[in-house]
Design a protein around this nucleic acid. Structure first.
Lengths: 155, 155
DNA sequence: GGCTTGCTTGGAGTGCACTCCAACTCAGTA
DNA sequence: TACTGAGTTGGAGTGCACTCCAAGCAAGCC
């Protein structure tokens, strides 16, 4: 719901980060949930929920059991956030990450899914542009006719 | 929910149609709900619901009690459809039509409301554009690496 | 020790925007 | 006259995506 604040990490890198051939166990800095919430525009609630439903791989924990997000987690989140922000249903996002988890032989399916979403995005862009024109027209109209005090029957 | 099929009437004219100084009782053709549903992309259910909650003025009825939408109704619907399609909450749409009903002294408030929505629309446009770039990047990536059969660990 | 702050959990609750239901009326056709 | 199809109603139900809750734990500070 909240506008997704741009996260510092390039969202393009995320899908790839999923299936890194695990060279070494990722020594990048770790982030507590509050920080990730602030950076991603998602609430801590939502972050936990995404993990619960499988949108996010189980996140690392501190020895006290608290979540510690890696930079790769952030990158995944950034991309997922973009998908969500542009209206992809959570169910489709889930399907996408399941394809990613399934391995390299799902490239075609993943591409197909993204292409379909791109079409949706283009359609929305067109709708928004068209509406922007209408809004400009009406706003201009109202600006030319500032509050007329009162006139004819109104109710 | 359904994509709003473009309605044949210019949506810019609608707000004005609300407060026509009632010159004569509008002799334009009348349309049954099924036709309006098809034209507007809203379901008949939704059209009745909009009327019930006050988004639409009580629509004229045939002598048998069935709704007969005027062209002015269609124009209002076209604009409301645009607002809805671009994410304005129904509550805000309701506020807008209440301002319209309240009379000509609410121009400023109406303009303010539309300006706020225009900002939302612009923000969405920016988000969508940014995401489009990411999608292009990843789709291109998947196109270059078509299904790798299988490789490393996948699960 | 006591307090605050930040985090944990599963399950229940919320808000929005429809969407459907059952029972009904009316118009048109055979 | 029977049937079909399109319309009517208020209230209840649905689906999605969160969002909150209560109860609890651990760390840091006075």
């Amino acid at each position: 719901m909240a506008t997704l604040a741009p996260i510092s990490i390039d969202p393009r890198g995320c899908g790839e980060a999923y299936n890194r051939p695990s060279p070494d166990p990722d020594r990048t800095p770790r982030h507590p949930i509050s920080e990730v919430a602030a950076a991603s525009g998602l609430t801590a609630h939502t972050l936990r929920w995404y993990e619960r439903i499988g949108l996010l791989e189980a996140v690392d924990r501190s020895y006290a059991g608290q979540r510690r997000y890696s930079d790769a987690d952030l990158a995944r989140l950034a991309f997922l956030g973009r998908l969500r922000l542009t209206g992809m249903p959570v169910a489709d996002m889930l399907r996408y990450v399941e394809l990613v988890r399934a391995g390299d032989h799902t490239y075609d399916d993943r591409r197909e899914l993204l292409v379909a979403h791109r079409e949706e995005v283009r359609q929305r862009l067109a709708d928004l542009h068209a509406t922007l024109a209408v809004l400009d027209y009406k706003i201009d109209l109202y600006s030319r006719l500032p509050d007329a005090g009162e006139q004819k029957e109104s109710a």
